[in-house]
Amino acid sequence: LESDAKEPIYVDSDTATYDDQKGIAIYTGNVHSVQGSLVTDSDQMTVYLNQGKIDKIFGVGNPVHIVQTQEEGKGTIDATSLKAEYYPNEHRLILIDNAIVLQSGNIYKSDRIEYDTQNSVAVAGESTSSKKRVHTIIGPKSSDPAAQPAPAPAPATSPAKKR
């Protein structure tokens, strides 16, 4: 949901390490984090802080599992990957390695899927490298008019801008 971005992020885990010098917090073991409707489960999550603000959150799991409620009536988006990078200030979530996104009945697979958590738009693959091929399964048009499939992901025109 659009409002997710303003919500605090709550994290639960077995253990954690805060490294004051590097300004990072590493949560390890059954890591469950919630930001509004954006829910993530992973094996380890690292929070990078810069001057008290969150720069990036990096998750690793087998797999990392992410669920988010889309706008009203559009159901949820369900994603998994081996790694995930989240830039909360840019509402950008990058799924890396065996990335699979299930959105409104469609399935997108690639080694890299970039997802805009504010507008629920997924961009799969990377134009500069053919390795990141995209495999899409468009679900059948359901008879129920209300369940309109979300627009197919825009093809990646330029590589994801690194911060």
Binding site: Y10, V11, T15, A16, Y18, Q21
Partner: peptide, 28 residues
């Protein structure tokens, strides 16, 4: 962030390890 049990290494900077039941909250 909170937890039960703490082990903090101060040999190079300060690394605070929380040993169980960890809860974190990050504000924007």
């Amino acid at each position: 962030t909170s937890g039960t049990g703490m082990h903090t290494d101060f040999s190079d900077g300060m690394q605070i390890n929380l040993l169980s039941d960890v809860r974190g909250r990050y504000e924007f």
